[in-house]
Structures are given as structure tokens and as C-alpha cells.
Design a protein around this nucleic acid. Structure first.
Lengths: 355, 355
DNA sequence: ACCGCGGGCTAATACGTATTAGCGATAGGA
DNA sequence: TCCTATCGCTAATACGTATTAGCCCGCGGT
């Protein structure tokens, strides 16, 4: 037979068109049978059966790319991190978010795009338009400290659905989910007050991140409500290691301060300084003084006794971010919820010593 | 002139057509400028510049689905896991792979799509065509124990570029990268031999995973080459905890066995049993007996002394997988390399005691 | 005989990008 | 002067599926 065409070896997968040919119907019908048929178009049961049989026989599987193209959405959620995306060093702070994000995305039928953002050595790292790449996804989650505010503003200004993990009030129009540091910090203070502590000091770093401000606010409010307001109970230390000394601590202790609270930061400097100072002063924890940490201890201190304080529910935060983002996608708007932190009893607090 | 109308406030991402309108050229030209222009069609530099400027201004990003459909490239690599993707329990075994994958992908200019595979509760978990979703990406990495072999065979049979992390010989045509357990295990034996141990026993679980078989092979070969072959040096224990007892251990020790080696498995059962037995027998490590572990210790034993043995270079394995996959994409074929494990001196081995 | 109606199906088109074929204009050679 | 050969660009189409608009047919009502 003169080749009117090499019979088109149909290498590759069968299309709806082939199924249609085999079943003796149109491609549209195949789409209706195999796709959802959300239009409620009526088809004869026999036709349905024939199509299903033909599809089974050919082993038809829909092409995801075509499907997504036709649906005008990708079912992809982006994850963009401003810090190095997967550095071993922050393993413990980034990964838990991802756990929650992944699980919630799976439940809702989305896949995830990890933008190899500003991660070390990334090909497009730091390029001026690097952020624009996220438009590939239907919407995107952002996390990290150092946001390129202008670029992000542009994106949300264009109506791109974006959710930031962590409070971000200053960026008008950007949705976010955050941890309720105010309430969690207050709870730690209430716990100390319940143990009889009347004078409590907060050691924080000299930095005005929202996370720090919120903790201080919760701390102060709880003091006030507990009737514990006194001389200024907050110490700002630019370099905790050199300012929070054994001498300083002994002095506070002599004044009647029986509990010290440190805020958590990436370095954990305030907490480390506090631990060192207490040890240097020869005081016993929790017999002489109680210590609390407004957050989780740094990974390298995992072996030490568990500090009293709270844990940031990172996985839950990730899940909440996905919920907010999908709400943006389907309803067009999302609220910015605060997720409660979990109180951690720990073993660094005890009853206030009798005077 | 009529077509110079101001771009209407489009919801959603800009298309090539909009870029074209803004730059005053055709969609084709935009595609030529922004796509690779592999046809070598000549364009005036000024035109090129106008298009680039317009694209930048609108924040244009190509639609991955459309790209894919038009039989081109995405610059997206998929990652599909058969185990629950991010279960907290395997945190330490899955995440390190991702670190390597992400970094290598970033270097090569690919972004990552995390398919929310068979992860617990996933919407499309277990659906017959769930695997086909990966076709959205140019190629895909697979990892996990329980592979749906039929579906995967189908994918690679149709020429889809796939690389498995972990040796996978039985699936014809599937590329993989794996750790060289044979050589790493042999090195541990050589280390022991160098310390003067003449009789060494391997405790393994009763399971025929490739990872176990490879370790045993390396172990036996090293014994043979070291002239240490003797009575059968390998113990298979279906339930190590009840079979590796202090009595058993004492008996072996009396026979002249001075070093015990355990294989690593997910549970670490063999290693745990060995530790318990040695302690129960009242023997000192490493003065009386030396112990080694063919892998990394379970996370919960991190506090204990570091076992002599080797570490599986998970990040490096992830990076190697990406290299193999990109080779598949660009050259059409890739070898399946073995990555060397890193010897870990540890502190559980010492010179063989004088008899 | 005409209309209306609903059941059962399909032709046409949209989705966004890549590729192919080809068009108009200018320049150089005979 | 005519013929070719670039150069610089565009119209048309393919990719596979989902959706929209509608076609044809038989039937009951007037």
C-alpha cells in the first residue's frame, strides 16, 4: 500500500479523539463522559458505557497540561521564601511550615511549586524580576524576614493572590496569617504570676520586628492586668551577651526580681545570655529564679532542660496560610487570622522563692 | 492605530498577546523573543528590546501548562513521593533529599513542583491516574518504598523522563541514583580489621530489600579480601530484640567475636538490640567489644555516643538525582550512578582486645 | 399541518504558547 | 530592468481538553 502516511504510529498516549473514534462518538462526548459533565448534559446510558469501555481498552489518561490549560488554572500554589530556601541551618524553622502547607494543599487538591527563590546559588537569585516568576502559580505563599516590599506590592497591586506567613500589616492589601504572640506571651506571664512571682523582667533584642513588638505588648498587658506593674520591666539589649551579665542578673535578683523572660529570635541570643548569666551568678533554676522563653529553644540547645514558654504552631500556620490563599482564589478575599501558640510547661519555672 | 487601546485591567496573568499589543508587534514575535527562538529567526535588536521592556512592565510569565501543551519545556522538575510526603515521622529521612534537590535545581535554573502525591488525606491520593499529573513537569523525581510499578512503567514506557532516588533495578528503563552501600559497608569492615579485629559479626533484619542485600555483600566481600572468612558471620533476625540477647552476645564474645556490626533500617531495631545486649552483658564499648552501624543512628539516639559507621549523603543523592534528570532532559539519557557514603569514625570502635 | 419541547448528541471555539509557512520590502547581481 | 536573496516580521495552525451554542429527531398538543 502506497503510504498515504506512515499510519501515524500513535506513539505516546491515546487522546480523547481516539477514544471517540473507537466508541463511535465525538470528542465532546468523550469529554463529557470522562470529565465531570458539570453542565448536566443528558447522555444515553449506553453511550456512556461504550465510551467508558473504549477508554478502558485504550488505557486513556487525561493530559494534565491540556486540562489545566483549558480550565485556565493550574491548581498550583507557589511557595516563595526570602531567606535561603532550604539552608541546613534553618532546617528547623522552615521545614515545619512546609509540612502544614503540603498537607493542607494536598487536601484541597493543589500541588506546590517551590520557587528556588533567593536560595543560595539560585540561577535567578536576586534578579530584578525574580518575584514575578511566582505568577506561574495560581497564588503564592511568602515567608521570610527581608521582603522586597516594592516588588511584592506590585504583585498584589495587580490582583495577584498572595499570603504572607507572619504578620505583615504595613504592606497594604497583603493577606497574612500569623501567630498570636500577644496572647501567648501573656499566658506565660500569667503562669509565672500563678506561681507567685511578683517581679518579672523581659529581655528582648533591640529590634522592632512585629514579632518582638507583639511579645512585649502581651507581656506588658499581662503584667498590668495582674497588678504587677512596677519599675520598667523590659530590657532592650543590642548585644545581649555583653549586657546580660552575672553581675546584672544578681543585682536584679537582689532587687526582688524572681523571674526572667527572653524573647525568641533566630539566634536565640537573649535566651543564651540569660542562661549564661544565671549560671555565672551561681543561681539555681528554678529554685532561685524562674526562666521562660517566648518561643522555641534553638536547635543546638535541644539537650538542655525544656524551657517554659510556648511553641509556635508552624505546621498549623502553614495550613492556615493555604486556607487563606485558597479562600483568596475562590472567594476573592480572605481574612488574616491569628493562630494560637501552644503553652509549653517546661522545667525552668517553679514557685517564687519565699523572701 | 485603533489597536493601541490601553490595556484593560486584566484580572489574572498577562499573556503574550498583551505584551505584543503593548510592544506593537505580533504574538509570534513575543514568543520568539521570550521563548528560545530555536529557529534562528532574525529579529531587529530594537524590536527585541521593545518586547523585553513590555514584558517586564507587565510582569509577564509564561504559562507552564500552555508551554507544556505546545510540546516545549517548562523549566519545572517534579518531585513525587510514594510515602506520605511530609510525615513528621520521616522528617529526617525525606527532608535532606529535598535540600539537595532544591539546591541543584536552583543552580540549573529549574523550579520544583511538589506533587502532593500519596500523602495522607490527599485529594487525589490513590486515584488511578494520580501519577500522570507529573506530566505537567518536564521530568520527575520519585522516591519512596511502595512504588505503583505499573503506572510508573507506563510513564517511562511512554518516554517520560523519570529518575528514582534509591536503587531500582527491577523496573526496566527507569533511571535511578543510589548510595553505594557495598563499598561503604566494606570500608567499615576494613576499619575494624585495621584495628585488629579478626572475627566480626553482622546483624541484619530478615528482609530482602536491595539496601540490605548490598550491605551484606560489601560486608562479606571485605571479610574475604581481608582473609577473615570463617564460620558464618551473618545473623538474620526477624525480631532482633528477642534474638540478640545478652546471653547470645556473651557466647559470641567467648567464641572470639570482638566486633558487631548492625545494618540500619527505618526502625533501627538491629542496632538497638545490639546496644541493649552489650549493656546487659556488662561489656564495655569499645574496650571489650567494638560496635558499628551501617548507616545513621535513629534520631532518638542522637544523644548517645556516635556510632562508628557511615552516613548516607542524602543531600548529595538528591543533587545527583537532579543531575541525572537534567541529563535525561538534555541528552536523552543518563547513567545511574552510585554515590559514595561518608565514613563516620564515631566512638564505638577501638583496638581489638588482646586475647 | 404547525408549533413547541426535551432528549441526545456534536461542531465550533477557547485556553496560551511554539512552530511553520510565507509575505513585503530592500539590496545586489545579471 | 528583472530576478533572486536576504532581512524582519506575521498569519495560521497545532497541542488536548472543556465549554458553549445549537442541531436533529420524535412526540404531544392545538
Amino acid at each position: 500500500m502506497a503510504d498515504k502516511r506512515p499510519a501515524k504510529v500513535r506513539r505516546g498516549r491515546p487522546r480523547q479523539a481516539e477514544v471517540a473514534r473507537l466508541a463511535g462518538v465525538s470528542q465532546t462526548t468523550v469529554s463529557l463522559v470522562l470529565g465531570g459533565n458539570k453542565q448536566g448534559i443528558v447522555l444515553h446510558p449506553d453511550t456512556r458505557a461504550r465510551v467508558l469501555e473504549a477508554a478502558r481498552e485504550l488505557g486513556y489518561v487525561p493530559d494534565p497540561a491540556a486540562r489545566r490549560l483549558a480550565a485556565a488554572r493550574n491548581n498550583l500554589l507557589g511557595v516563595f521564601s526570602f531567606t535561603a530556601t532550604f539552608p541546613t541551618a534553618v532546617e528547623h524553622s522552615y521545614y515545619p511550615f512546609l509540612v502544614g502547607v503540603e498537607q493542607e494543599a494536598a487536601v484541597r487538591g493543589y500541588d506546590l511549586v517551590l520557587f528556588t527563590g533567593s536560595s543560595s546559588g539560585g540561577a535567578q537569585a536576586g534578579a530584578p524580576g525574580a518575584l514575578e516568576r511566582v505568577r506561574l502559580a495560581d497564588g503564592c505563599l511568602f515567608l521570610g524576614r527581608h521582603i522586597p516590599a516594592d516588588e511584592l506590592r506590585r504583585l498584589v497591586g495587580h490582583g495577584y493572590p498572595a499570603v504572607h506567613i507572619g504578620r505583615r500589616d504595613e504592606l497594604e492589601g497583603l493577606a497574612w496569617v500569623g501567630a498570636d504572640y500577644v496572647d501567648a506571651s501573656a499566658e506565660v506571664v500569667r503562669h509565672l504570676a500563678g506561681l507567685g512571682h511578683r517581679r518579672i523582667v523581659l529581655v528582648r533584642e533591640d529590634d522592632d520586628a512585629p514579632a518582638s513588638t507583639d511579645r512585649e505588648r502581651g507581656f506588658r498587658e499581662a503584667l498590668r492586668r495582674g497588678g504587677l506593674a512596677g519599675a520598667d520591666p523590659v530590657v532592650r539589649a543590642a548585644d545581649p551577651a555583653s549586657e546580660i551579665t552575672p553581675a546584672w542578673l544578681r543585682e536584679r535578683h537582689a532587687e526582688g526580681v524572681t523571674a526572667f523572660v527572653a524573647e525568641e529570635t533566630d539566634t536565640g541570643a537573649a535566651w543564651r545570655a540569660l542562661l549564661a548569666a544565671v549560671e555565672g551568678a551561681g543561681l539555681d533554676v528554678p529554685a532561685d529564679v524562674s526562666l521562660a522563653l517566648l518561643g522555641s529553644p534553638p536547635a543546638d540547645l535541644a539537650g538542655r532542660p525544656r524551657p517554659t514558654g510556648f511553641d509556635i504552631p508552624r505546621a498549623e500556620l502553614g495550613a492556615a496560610a493555604v486556607r487563606a490563599l485558597t479562600a483568596l482564589l475562590t472567594e476573592g478575599e480572605a481574612e488574616s487570622p491569628l493562630v494560637a501558640c501552644a503553652f509549653r510547661p517546661g522545667s525552668t519555672t517553679g514557685p517564687a522563692p519565699a523572701r
